[in-house]
Amino acid sequence: MGSLRIVPILLLLASPALAQTYSIGRAPTAAELAQSITLSPTGEGLPPGHGSAAEGAVLYTQKNCVVCHGPAGVGGVTSAPNLIGNKGTGPGDDAWKRVRGGEADGALPILAPNATIVWDYINRGMPLGNEGSLTPNEVYALTAYLFVLNKMIPEDQVLDQNNLAQVKMPIGTDWVRPPDWKPGAPRMAGYPY
């Protein structure tokens, strides 16, 4: 009797559901892994490179950013968002007030919790229509240019893979993380709907 009861357990142990691996797929090469463009907010995954605001200012025209976002990121020339905070606001002002209720929402450098998001956004998505065409040095330079326009870094600072994540962002800690997700839990504790 006792030994019979063990049989189903043994069958379960032998079943693939518990074995969990199937040896399907192959290991990526080092070169393939190096193609990843996913960044961490602490700068892990950033490719080596560097760029200054002076270089970025030239690229901003060369790469047509100016056509859509206006001179010095003021916006308003097309429906692309402004890349600088509202006029009359600057360091020390409430970050959310620097972008909302003004000319337009946007100004990613001000609302980004980490400098790496600005780099990531330009690297993945800009210039619109020719995405993925910028070199790492160009992305560092354009990021530096937008940060100088928003008075976030000194004009002569060169951004690179080591110091980008250290840039102090205007929003600081004034933003909330996504909720803790658990299966079967409502969207927000205490919210009835």
Binding site: L39, S40, P41, I117, D120, Y121, R124, G125, R177, P178
Partner: peptide, 11 residues
């Protein structure tokens, strides 16, 4: 939490 381009929209 990585904060990529799309995540920016959830801040």
């Amino acid at each position: 939490y990585q904060l990529n381009m799309n995540d920016f929209g959830h801040i």
